[in-house]
């Protein structure tokens, strides 16, 4: 049977921002299992889908730029993805699934991430690139792949959002 590698883009928001990285992985694995799509499993006794995730997020952060790679034995078209989304808990959404090359590596694909920090009052740290929107202030910061991620509340922000993956396309 033909193996196909897929890069999934997903979002995790609402109450699901309180999942740890491990809990997120498990939640996604089980959502995929419910679709019945045949997925490559890890070796070893315990049943687990072989999924590689990009950089882990600390608990509490909203993720609009989640990425993972799985290997399937069947095509995942738009309608299949739609079905999959119906099998996700509220707050988790698969945005798209794109076929990638056999040698695709997330660590080479992702250069870094853009984060948005939401403040309820004007932040003191002037080094941010800040925009005021109605009652809130939004700061944008960039962090390169696998460097430290701004923790919730670290700068006095009310919310932290991983808003975008910056991809260089080295693959």
């Amino acid at each position: 049977m033909n193996q196909i590698k897929y890069l999934f883009h997903y979002k995790k928001y609402g109450m699901l921002r309180y999942l740890s990285h491990l809990e997120t992985m498990k939640m996604i694995d089980r959502a995929l299992r419910r679709t019945g799509i045949e997925l490559k499993q890890t070796e070893g006794f315990h049943q687990r889908t072989k999924i590689s995730f990009a950089q882990a997020l600390p608990t509490g952060i909203i993720d609009l730029a989640g990425l993972f790679v799985v290997t399937t034995f069947e095509e995942i078209d738009v309608s299949r993805l739609k079905e999959a989304n119906k099998l996700c808990p509220r707050g988790c959404e698969f945005v798209k699934a794109e076929k990638v090359d056999e040698k695709f590596k997330l660590s080479r694909f992702v250069d870094g991430y853009e984060f948005k920090l939401i403040f309820l009052k004007e932040p003191e740290d002037a080094s941010f690139d800040i925009e005021k929107k109605g009652e809130i202030w939004i700061a944008r910061i960039f962090r390169s792949f696998n460097s430290s991620i701004p923790k919730n509340g670290e700068y006095g922000q009310f919310l932290t959002i991983r808003s975008q993956a910056i991809t260089g396309g080295a693959n």
């Binding site: 109450m15 999942l19 608990t59 996700c88 808990p89 509220r90 707050g91």
Partner: peptide, 17 residues
Amino acid sequence: VLDKVQKPSRYIGGEYN
């Protein structure tokens, strides 16, 4: 409060099913 406690996923509800 959920940002301040251990394992907040215990308290969020809305689990699948």
